[in-house]
Simulated scan of single mutants.
Amino acid sequence: MMKAVAVSEYGGPEVLRVVEIPEPHAGPGQVRVRVHAAAVNPADTLLRIGDIDSMLVGRLTPPYRPGLDAAGILDEIGPGTATDLRIGDRVMAMVSQVEPSGGAYAEHVVLAATQVTHAPAGTSHVEAATLPMNGLTARRALDLLDLAAGEWLAVSGAAGAVGGYAVELAKVDGLRVVADAAPADEELVRELGADVVVPRGAGVGERFRETVPAGVAAVLDAALLGADVVPALRDGGQVAIVRRPGERGAAAGLTGVTVRDVWVPDYQHARDKLDELRVLAERGRLTLRVAQEFPAEQAPDAHRRLEAGGARGRLVLTF
């Protein structure tokens, strides 16, 4: 048996409970990770409150387990599995909450070998757990936008997890970046690499446009602002959205522009993309920001802290 944090009923943070469930083992094409750290994401709360119930029923048996990011030690390799990983390696992975593996809030998780790569050298498990899902979301968004070096990208929510990685990856790609920030976050966003920082809040699209009078080529809307970012765009501009239409909190009002729907599960098995993020982290091009660690038993507190807002860096559960 193993310890996990799961929900048997939907509701507030208090429904997250430590449970004992059967310990899984790696089959063909799979590896098992002894999870030491699992980051806490807004998407985890969608499972907890029941917003993705239709994706769980019929596929998994309750209790349901949240968690999209895992870091730890590889401790099993399934028969016939092709991988350069070895037992004992420090690894990280993006995990799916809606597949048989279950989410990352557990002592062990079994994954396809294509989901797992080495953790960045010199990082802790907690630091490594901050990278996979949000890093891959930013990478997927930029790949969909497919901008040429030197073009202008606007990033909303630049001090957040996706937004911060988006700024740093955009600079790796040779883009020019205008980003938003609260006064307390302006220095952080500049350190991440933004060329210009404007005040966040209502009217940010107009402030982006004042900075780039000809209009930016694209907006990566990590803050879910929707129509408010449209004034920033030049003719033919694009907006990358990180929450799908119809999902709770999804942006609205994006008419007359090209919308790129960033569905990060498209990169769930893109091990090459995740490994590129590892290399960039090792080179200091990506910043792994931890706001606070919580023992697994304090998962409700971690969710309350997430929902209170304002965390700069990731909240991480330890197992």
Rank of each mutant, 00 (worst) to 15 (best):
T318K: 04
Y64M: 05
A104N: 04
G122C: 06
Y267A: 07
P295G: 05
G249D: 10
A138F: 04
V126I: 08
A149R: 09
G249E: 02
P199I: 01
G103W: 04
L286D: 00
E20H: 06
L46H: 13
L188I: 12
Q97W: 00
V189I: 13
R34T: 08
G309D: 01
M92G: 08
I49S: 10
V212L: 07
D180N: 15
D84Q: 10
L233Y: 05
A93K: 04
R312W: 01
A106Q: 05
T255Q: 13
E168I: 14
I241R: 09
G205P: 06
A182R: 10
G215M: 12
A217H: 08
A250I: 06
Q115R: 14
T117K: 04
T287L: 15
V259N: 02
R200C: 03
L144N: 03
K171H: 15
L306G: 14
L225Y: 01
V196D: 07
V290C: 03
A202M: 07
E107I: 01
P295K: 02
G27F: 15
V177E: 04
A93I: 05
M133E: 00
K3H: 04
T211S: 07
L56Y: 06
A161R: 04
V15N: 10
V15A: 13
E76Q: 08
V219E: 03
R48F: 06
G157Q: 00
T123V: 08
E14V: 11
Q238H: 13
R243K: 08
T61H: 15
R190Q: 00
A218D: 02
R248T: 13
G246R: 11
G215K: 15
R200A: 15
L306I: 07
A138Y: 01
P231I: 04
L306C: 14
D84Y: 11
G103R: 04
V264N: 09
E210Q: 15
G201Y: 03
A270K: 07
A129W: 00
V290G: 01
G11C: 04
A214W: 07
E210D: 14
N134G: 03
V98C: 06
A217S: 13
V279C: 12
A179Y: 01
P13D: 06
A6W: 10
G237C: 13
A217M: 07
E297F: 02
G80V: 09
V264P: 06
H303V: 11
S124I: 14
A141Q: 05
A128D: 08
T117L: 09
K3E: 03
L315S: 11
A281F: 13
L147D: 11
A104C: 10
V126K: 01
V242C: 07
E276C: 07
E99M: 04
L131I: 14
V126A: 12
V18C: 12
V33L: 08
L280M: 12
A252V: 08
V167Q: 12
A158R: 01
D143M: 15
A302P: 14
K273R: 09
I77V: 14
E168L: 09
V126H: 01
A281R: 02
D195G: 15
R48W: 13
P300E: 13
E76D: 09
A119W: 01
A112Y: 03
Q238S: 11
S156W: 00
G88Q: 11
L233R: 07
V212T: 09
L233F: 12
